[in-house]
């Protein structure tokens, strides 16, 4: 994978993955991101962090954004740059994410009182990735943009 340039500057090397909103497909996104990161030269521990973050983001998109509607797609964009990998995960936004959701720090006591013990995903993503941003996708759905830096 070379670093070609065009007349407009460096070419973005983007892989686009379109997955059904069905639990289990987060694994495909994890494996794809892992394969790309490995070839870019990321260390194993960073790849593990990336896989966890991608898994959480895609699971959120399936469960919350697309409300398990398997006809809806989750779109994962993987952009390889010289010094970083950018992963964007977008859903079709059946249920928009609240601002509170994306900034809240989970409290162990509160979570343990919940039946599903969930609610760690976004916090985990923020802990594991170098940059995280929640926005609205061009399609109108929820979008999370995550960046992991490549240290050589």
């Amino acid at each position: 994978m070379s670093n070609d340039t065009s007349q407009n500057g460096p070419l973005e090397k983007v892989i686009e993955l379109r997955l059904p909103s069905k639990l289990g497909y987060e694994r495909v996104a994890m494996d794809t991101a892992s394969s790309l990161a490995k070839r870019m030269g990321f260390q194993d521990d960073r790849i593990d962090s990336l896989k966890t973050a991608v898994s959480e983001a895609v699971t959120n998109a399936i469960e919350h954004g697309n409300q398990h509607d398997s006809a809806m797609k989750v779109v994962v964009l993987l952009t390889a740059r010289d010094d970083e990998l950018i992963v964007s995960v977008a859903d079709q936004g059946r249920k928009p994410l609240s601002q509170n959701c994306t900034t809240k720090i989970p409290h162990l006591e509160e979570i343990m009182e919940q039946p599903d013990k969930g609610g760690w995903g976004i916090w985990l993503i923020r802990e594991l990735m170098d940059e995280v941003e929640f926005t609205t996708a061009p399609s109108g759905g929820n979008q999370v943009r995550m960046v992991i830096h490549l240290e050589r």
Binding site: I15, L17, V28, T32
Partner: peptide
């Protein structure tokens, strides 16, 4: 039952990543 789409740039090396993605889909 299921479908998945992948789009990638025309650069040698990317076929490996696509291979891993499709293998994961098939394995599942």
């Amino acid at each position: 039952i299921a479908s998945m789409d992948i789009s990638f740039p025309s650069e040698l090396g990317y076929e490996i990543i696509v291979r891993d993605a499709v293998e994961s889909f098939a394995h599942r």
